[in-house]
Simulated assay, not measured.
Amino acid sequence: MKNTKTCPKCNSKSISRILGEAGPHGSGNIIMTGMTVFSAVKVTRYLCCECGYSEEWIDDKKDIEKIIYMLKW
């Protein structure tokens, strides 16, 4: 959905992009890569407004690298 702008389940073009957000106490749509919210990687959701199908993506290449680094530990 991120790249095609089309839902793979119902072929709708009605797609909403919901930005990841880091809230207090580690809340929000994030992946923690350290001990503080400042190390959080924000996860963007893509939602089909017709059928409800959703996908989650890490949009920033640097954030992907942070996760890979964390997984090596």
Rank of each mutant, 00 (worst) to 15 (best):
E55S: 13
I64G: 04
V41I: 07
L19G: 08
I58V: 15
C49H: 04
I64F: 03
L71E: 14
W73D: 08
E65S: 12
Y69T: 13
F38T: 11
I31G: 01
V37E: 08
T6Q: 03
H25Q: 14
E65L: 10
M70Q: 14
L71T: 14
K61W: 04
M70G: 01
M70S: 05
W73Q: 14
G23W: 03
K66R: 15
K5L: 08
I58F: 03
I30F: 01
D63M: 03
L47W: 01
K42A: 08
P8D: 10
S39I: 02
K5Q: 11
D59K: 06
Y69V: 08
S14G: 05
G28D: 11
V43S: 00
K62S: 13
V37P: 00
C49M: 14
K5A: 09
P8T: 03
L19Q: 12
I15M: 04
H25G: 06
E56V: 07
S12R: 09
G52R: 14
L19D: 15
K61G: 02
K42Q: 15
I30S: 01
M32I: 03
I68M: 06
M35N: 15
L19S: 11
T44R: 02
D60Q: 10
G52S: 10
L19M: 09
H25Y: 14
C49P: 02
K5E: 12
E21M: 06
E65R: 04
K9Q: 11
P8G: 07
V43L: 06
E56C: 11
G28K: 05
K62Y: 02
K72D: 13
K62N: 15
R45F: 00
I15F: 01
Y53S: 09
P8L: 10
V41P: 00
W57Y: 14
V37L: 06
K66Y: 08
R17L: 05
Y46E: 06
S39M: 11
M1F: 05
K5V: 10
E21C: 07
K62Q: 14
I58H: 00
R17K: 15
S39C: 14
Y53W: 12
G28V: 07
N3H: 09
T4A: 12
I64V: 15
K61V: 10
Y53P: 02
D63G: 03
I15G: 02
F38M: 13
T44Q: 03
I18Y: 01
R45A: 08
I68D: 12
E21S: 07
V37D: 05
K72V: 04
G20V: 01
M35W: 07
D60L: 12
I31A: 03
Y69A: 13
P8C: 08
G23L: 14
L47E: 10
G26Q: 09
G52P: 03
T33Q: 06
Y53K: 10
G20F: 00
T33K: 00
M35I: 13
G28A: 06
C10P: 11
L19E: 15
F38D: 15
W57L: 05
I58S: 01
N11C: 07
D59N: 13
S54V: 09
T44A: 05
P24V: 08
K42M: 06
K9A: 02
